[in-house]
Design a protein around this nucleic acid. Sequence first.
DNA 1: TTTACAATAT
DNA 2: GATATTGTAA
Length: 309
Amino acid sequence: MREDDSNWFARWEEELPSPDELMPITQTLITPDLALAFDIRNSNQPVPPPPPPLPTSSGLPSPNHNNGNPSLSSAELGSGTGGDEPARTLKRPRLVWTPQLHKRFVDAVAHLGIKNAVPKTIMQLMSVDGLTRENVASHLQKYRLYLKRMQGLSSGGGGGGGGGGGLSGGSSTVGVDAATDHLFASSPVPAHFLHPGRPPNSDHFLPFVPVSALQHHHHQQQMAVAAAAAVAHPQLQGQYHRQMGHFGSPPNGQFDHPFLARPAAQQQAVHRMGPPVHNAPVPGYVEDLESANGNAGRKVLTLFPTGDD
DNA sequence: TTTACAATAT
DNA sequence: GATATTGTAA
C-alpha cells in the first residue's frame, strides 16, 4: 500500500534523515573547483582510469561530458578561453533522477501547486545541492508530459494505476507502466495534479520549515561533494539496483529511511526573496565515475539509491 | 535582464 | 530513452 495520499506531505519531514544519519561517509574537503583547478584527486576515491592526456586534439568545443568531474584532471578545453577559467566553464556530470530525488521534486511541486511550480522555485524548495534550474526545468518538462498522459488516460477511461501491463505498441497505448513511467510512478502523483480545476484544500499546507540557513560565501553552487559511490550502469538504469555496497549496508537488508536532503534552509521561496543568498543545501549527492566498457567517459551524478517509497 | 517553456541535440 | 542544451517568448 502506498502512503495515504491524504497527507502525503505530512510525513515529508519524517522521512528525512537526521543530520548524523547523513554522510557518514567520506567527504571531500576540497571543492570540485579547486580539485579540478589544482589537479587534485581525492585519495579516498578509487580513481578509476587515468585520463588520457590528449594534447593536440582538435579544439572542438564538442560536447565533452567528461569535464565537470572533480576527480578528473586534465582539462584540455583549451580553445579560445583557454586555461584561464577552468572550473567555471566545466560541465557537471549528468544528473540521474533517482526515485528519491524525484520524490522531492514531486513534493516540492505539490507544495507549490502546479501553477506556481516553476523550475526556479522547485529547485529552491528541493534544496538539493548541485541541482540546477536547468536540471529541474528539464525534468519538469518531462513530468508535465507524464501528467498530461495520465490525465488523458484517466479521463479516457483507463486504468492507471498500476498494473497495467505490457503495452508499448502504439503511441496512444497506455504506457503507464513503461520504464519511463517507473520513475514517476515511484512517487505518488498528488491527485489535484491531474485535476486542474479543484484543489483538494488550500488550507493548512505544510509550511516548509523556514529554517535559518547557513550560507556559505561561495559564489557558485557547483555540485556538492560526492558522498559515496554508487554505480549506475546504464544498463541497470531500468532496475534501480541498489548498489550501496560500501556505505550503508543495511544490517537486515532493508533501508527504511531514504536519506535525502532535508528541507533545511528553505528560504521563503514562496515569500519572495531578495538577495541571492544560498541556503544550505543538502549534501546528498553521489558522484559516480563510470569507466565501464561501452560507456567510457560518461559520468553520472546521482543521489543515493535508497529504499523505495 | 532574467526566467520559463518548448524544441532539439547528445 | 533520459538529460542537456539551445532558442524564443514573456
